[in-house]
Deep mutational scan, measured.
Amino acid sequence: TIDEIIKALEQAVKDNKPIQVGNYTVTSADEAEKLAKKLKKEY
């Protein structure tokens, strides 16, 4: 679900690790936030 994706992003940001979500690779908190907002609009 979208919530699980967002939790995974938040965890990756805390661990400061890049995370791959679908076609996106998120490497920073800023990118994670942008991706989360984008995904919320889509779903």
Rank of each mutant, 00 (worst) to 15 (best):
K37F: 07
K34F: 11
I19C: 10
T25S: 11
E31T: 02
D30L: 12
A36C: 14
A36W: 13
Q11L: 08
E42L: 13
K41D: 14
K37A: 14
A29G: 12
G22Q: 04
A32R: 00
G22D: 06
K34A: 15
A32P: 00
K37P: 01
N23F: 07
K41N: 15
K34D: 11
N23W: 08
Q20V: 13
I2T: 03
L35K: 00
E4I: 04
K7I: 09
E4H: 07
D3S: 09
L35F: 01
T1Y: 11
E33D: 12
L39F: 04
A8G: 05
Q11P: 01
K38H: 11
K17N: 09
K17S: 08
E4C: 13
K7R: 13
V21S: 01
V13H: 05
E31N: 01
I6K: 01
K41P: 03
E33A: 14
A36S: 08
L39N: 06
K14N: 07
Q20M: 09
K37C: 14
K38S: 08
A29T: 07
Y43W: 09
K34P: 00
L9Y: 01
N16A: 09
E33G: 07
D30W: 14
Q11Y: 04
D15Y: 10
I19S: 01
D15S: 10
E31V: 03
P18N: 04
T1F: 13
G22M: 07
E10D: 05
T25Y: 15
I5D: 00
E4P: 03
E10N: 06
V26E: 03
E10C: 12
K14H: 11
K37S: 12
K40A: 09
T27P: 05
D15C: 14
E33H: 08
E10G: 04
S28R: 00
A36T: 04
A29D: 02
E31S: 02
E33Y: 09
V26F: 04
I6E: 00
K41S: 13
T27L: 15
K34S: 11
I19R: 01
Q20R: 14
K41I: 12
I6R: 03
K37E: 15
K34L: 12
Q20S: 11
T25G: 05
E4D: 12
N16D: 06
V26L: 06
P18L: 07
N16K: 08
V13W: 10
A8H: 03
K14I: 15
L39W: 01
Q11C: 03
K37R: 10
L9C: 04
E33R: 10
A29E: 03
Y43M: 13
N16F: 15
K38W: 14
N16Q: 12
N23C: 09
E42Q: 10
Q20W: 05
I6Y: 04
Y24N: 04
N23M: 12
Q20G: 03
L9A: 03
T25H: 14
Y43I: 12
T27D: 13
A12D: 00
A8P: 01
K41T: 13
K38A: 11
Q20C: 15
L35D: 02
A12V: 12
E31R: 00
Q11I: 05
E10H: 05
T1D: 11
A29W: 07
K41L: 15
S28W: 09
S28V: 04
G22P: 02
D3L: 14
I5H: 01
Y43P: 07
K14A: 11
I2R: 04
I2V: 08
E10I: 11
N16Y: 05
Y43D: 05
Y24R: 03
E42N: 07
D3C: 14
K7P: 03
T1L: 11
K17H: 08
S28N: 15
K34N: 11
E4R: 05
T1M: 12
I2A: 03
P18C: 05
A8E: 06
G22C: 11
A12I: 09
Q20K: 15
E10F: 12
T27A: 11
K38D: 10
L9S: 00
E10T: 06
I19M: 08
Q20T: 15
S28T: 14
L39G: 01
K40C: 15
K41H: 14
N23K: 12
A36Y: 15
I19W: 04
K37V: 11
G22W: 09
K34W: 13
K41Y: 12
A36K: 04
L39A: 01
G22T: 02
N16H: 08
K34M: 13
I19H: 02
L35V: 05
K34R: 11
P18D: 00
K17V: 12
S28E: 03
K17P: 02
L9H: 00
V13F: 08
I5C: 10
L35P: 00
N23P: 15
T25V: 12
Y24G: 04
K34C: 15
V26D: 02
E33C: 08
V13D: 02
K41A: 15
A8S: 08
A32Q: 01
V21T: 02
D15N: 10
I6M: 06
E4V: 06
T27C: 15
K14V: 11
T27W: 13
T25W: 15
A12Q: 03
N23V: 12
L39H: 02
T1V: 06
I6A: 01
D30P: 05
L9Q: 02
P18V: 09
K37H: 14
K17Q: 10
E10A: 06
K40L: 13
L35Q: 01
K17A: 06
Y43H: 13
T1Q: 08
P18K: 04
A36P: 02
K38F: 14
V13L: 08
E4L: 10
V26C: 14
L39I: 04
A36D: 01
Y24T: 05
I5N: 00
T1N: 09
Y24P: 01
Q11A: 09
V13A: 14
I6P: 02
E33T: 06
L35T: 02
K17I: 11
E4S: 10
D15M: 08
K14Q: 10
K34G: 05
E42W: 13
D15A: 10
G22Y: 07
V21D: 01
A12T: 04
K34T: 11
V21H: 04
K41Q: 15
N23I: 12
I19P: 02
